[in-house]
C-alpha cells in the first residue's frame, strides 16, 4: 500500500450570500403574473371586452378596482388579459432566439474552424442591421398581426444577439484545460458539450435569457405604442398604454396601471437575472 501523507484539508468555505427576500418577492411577482395570464379565463374576472357605457372613465372603486377606460371596460381585467400577450411574446420569442442561437453559438465556439468563421461572419452581418427597425418594417407589412407572427419576428431577430452572447461565453470555457482534459479522457463531443460546457455557460445563459425576456416585453410595448402589436381590441400592456394617450387628461389611471404592471414585471425580471448571475459566479480563487 501507499504511504500517504496525512492531509490537513483546509476547506475553502462555500460562502454564498443567500438570494435574499427581495429576490423571492420578485420571483413571486413573476409567478403571480404568469399564473394570472394562464388562468385569466377561469379566474373571476370581468370580461375585458365588455363595454359598460354607464361606467366610463371611473376611477378605482370597489366594483372596478383599477377603474374603467373611456369605453367602460374594466382596466384590471384588461391588464390581466393583457399580460397574456406581453408574457407570451417575451417568453415565446426567447424560446425561438435561444432555441436557434444558443446551440449554434455553443457549437461554433467549440468546433471553431471554418464552421465558426462562416457562421460568425453571417451573424455579425445580421447584427449590423438595426434589429428594431427590421422588426418594425416586417411587422408593418405582415398583416394581420397575430401574437404568433410577433413572436416569430422578434424571436428570429434576436438569434444573432443570443448567438453572440453564448458563443463568447462558450469560447472562454472551451479553452479551459478541463475541456481538453475531458477530450483526452476519451469523451465524445456531445458529452463535452453537455457535461463540461453547458453547466458552465448556463448561469450566463439564464441571466441573459431573463434580461432578454424583459427587453422583448418592453419591445412589444414599443411596438404596440407604434400600433404594430396585436390588433385592438385584444388588450396588451403596450396597447393599453397606447390607447391611454388620447384620454390622459380625463383618466390618468388608464396610463398608470398598465405602465405600473409593465415596469414591475420588467424590474423583477432584471433583478432576478442579475442576482442569479452573481449567485452562480464561481470565481476561481487562486492558490
Amino acid at each position: 500500500m501507499l504511504e500517504l501523507e496525512e492531509m490537513a484539508l483546509v476547506e475553502r468555505p462555500e460562502k454564498k450570500k443567500p438570494l435574499g427576500p427581495l429576490f423571492w418577492l420578485c420571483v413571486g411577482w413573476i409567478a403571480l403574473n404568469i399564473f394570472g395570464a394562464i388562468f385569466a379565463n377561469v379566474l373571476p374576472l370581468q370580461n375585458p371586452l365588455y363595454q359598460n357605457y354607464s361606467a366610463i372613465n371611473v376611477g378605482p372603486s370597489l366594483h372596478h378596482i383599477f377603474g374603467t377606460d373611456d369605453i367602460g371596460r374594466d382596466i384590471f381585467s384588461r391588464i390581466v388579459y393583457g399580460s397574456r400577450v406581453s408574457i407570451a411574446v417575451g417568453f415565446g420569442s426567447m424560446v425561438i432566439g435561444f432555441g436557434i442561437g444558443a446551440p449554434l453559438g455553443m457549437l461554433a465556439a467549440y468546433r471553431r474552424g471554418r464552421f465558426d468563421t462562416i457562421l460568425t461572419t453571417f451573424m455579425y452581418i445580421l447584427l449590423a442591421f438595426p434589429a428594431i427597425i427590421a422588426t418594425i418594417a416586417v411587422l408593418s407589412f405582415w398583416t394581420p398581426r397575430s401574437v404568433f407572427k410577433i413572436i416569430l419576428v422578434i424571436g428570429l431577430a434576436s438569434v444573432p444577439l443570443v448567438y453572440r452572447v453564448i458563443r463568447t461565453a462558450t469560447l472562454s470555457v472551451a479553452t479551459k484545460d478541463y475541456v481538453i482534459a475531458a477530450k483526452v479522457q476519451g469523451a465524445k463531443d456531445r458529452r463535452i458539450l453537455m457535461k463540461e460546457l453547458l453547466p458552465n455557460i448556463a448561469p450566463i445563459g439564464i441571466s441573459f435569457l431573463l434580461i432578454g425576456i424583459a427587453t422583448v416585453i418592453a419591445l412589444e410595448g414599443t411596438l404596440a405604442f407604434l400600433g404594430l402589436s396585436v390588433t385592438t381590441p385584444t388588450p396588451s400592456w403596450g396597447n393599453m398604454i397606447n390607447e391611454s394617450r388620447t384620454v390622459l387628461q380625463q383618466n390618468p389611471w388608464l396610463a398608470i396601471f398598465p405602465s405600473l404592471a409593465l415596469c414591475l414585471f420588467l424590474l423583477s425580471l432584471n433583478f432576478i437575472g442579475d442576482r442569479l448571475r452573481s449567485h452562480f459566479d464561481v470565481t476561481e480563487v487562486k492558490l
Binding site: K176, D177, Y178, I180, A181, P199, N200, V282, E284, K286
Partner: peptide, 12 residues
Amino acid sequence: FQDPISSLNPRR
C-alpha cells in the same frame, strides 16, 4: 496539465 485548478471543471 500545468494549471491544477483550471484542469478540473469547477461545477462538477
